[in-house]
Design a protein around this nucleic acid. Structure first.
Lengths: 180, 180
DNA sequence: CAGAACATGTAAACGGTTACATGATTCC
DNA sequence: GGAATCATGTAACCGTTTACATGTTCTG
């Protein structure tokens, strides 16, 4: 159900084709909010068109169809955003799940995974940071993406700091020895 | 596929029944890593038993079956944790999605949602914080959960700070007026 | 003219949610 | 004895992924 609103939200920023939307999902939004493949996007765009929430704004080369949100679509989107949130419904994040299950590993292995996490998160944070600087450079409408980019930066930063703290914890526990 | 490993991971901490596992999902882990309902958990426990990765350790009152991880199950779990991660595969978080689509709202409405987010995240952070203090009080094995709790605390804290920053941004933009 | 990227679609299989269904034990 | 909680299970439906399938335009 959320896919509908993810699509409406993206189309609300600016008109796009299914192909464009597929790429936008595989970039920013797909990494920490909602992911979707083209095989799901195209049928959903058709349904949204049937329901009058979006429309084909332009047909271009190679069968390209550019969709735009309609007034009715904007109302639906706003309604969904303003409605009290379905509390934390069905989160799914394999990356975080791994971090939760670290106690299944011994200390050296856990430290290894945490170090890898720090490296990966640092790279991700830097990539989004660069993106964020571009958002700032381009004024006006581009600023929309800046909120999301900042969110990503802060989440990765928090992950890095947590992983550093976790390594210290694990190390402290082991050097404190059989104290309990 | 991740559900298997989520179950193995939880059973690796200590033996539990399907009922216990259902509750553990609806608490901590379900809120930011992986969620699951009992209707999915029971069939998966049966499959894991058939595959020899877990076993029924005890049968109690009311048909209660306590499952425990086997040696083979521990190997599978370790293998999955150590294997290079499937990069950010299929994240799904409706709560975060909403935050991404704020540009569809006008400034007052967006501020309202952000304020609500701060309130909600503050309450969540406090709840986990209390949980975390308990983890620290109970020594030894209970410490496992402390890493996860800290992760949650830091994520909510980062969300709060981001939302405060976002409110300032929105407010600054509007008072800067039609500068562009 | 070949290969990469653009562009859209469908079908089968799988994973997950909602609803249905049942019964045992505990607490008041 | 009635209500709440414990405890497990199944079935239909819906959402998602993987794989199949096709054709166009641009670049070198």
């Amino acid at each position: 159900m959320s896919l509908r609103f993810a699509l409406l939200g993206l189309l609300n920023e600016h008109p796009s084709s299914g192909y464009d939307l597929t790429r936008r999902f595989s970039e920013g939004i797909g990494a920490y909010a909602w992911d979707a493949k083209h095989s799901q996007i195209y049928p959903e765009l058709r349904k949204l068109t049937e329901d009058g929430l979006i429309e084909i704004a332009e047909e271009g080369a190679r069968g390209r169809k550019t969709y735009a949100i309609t007034g009715q679509g904007q109302e639906e989107l706003r309604g969904w955003l303003l409605r009290p949130p379905t509390v934390a419904g069905g989160v799914r994040n394999e990356y975080v799940l791994r971090l939760f299950l670290l106690s299944a590993l011994d200390q050296d292995e856990a430290r290894q995974i945490l170090t890898r996490t720090i490296e990966y998160s640092t790279r991700q944070r830097e990539a989004i940071d660069a993106e964020y600087q571009e958002h700032l450079a381009g004024g006006g409408a581009a600023r929309q993406g800046a909120l999301a980019a900042q969110y990503g930066i802060r989440m990765y930063q928090a992950t890095i700091e947590w992983a550093q703290w976790a390594i210290e914890q694990i190390t402290a526990e082991s050097s404190a020895g059989s104290g309990s």
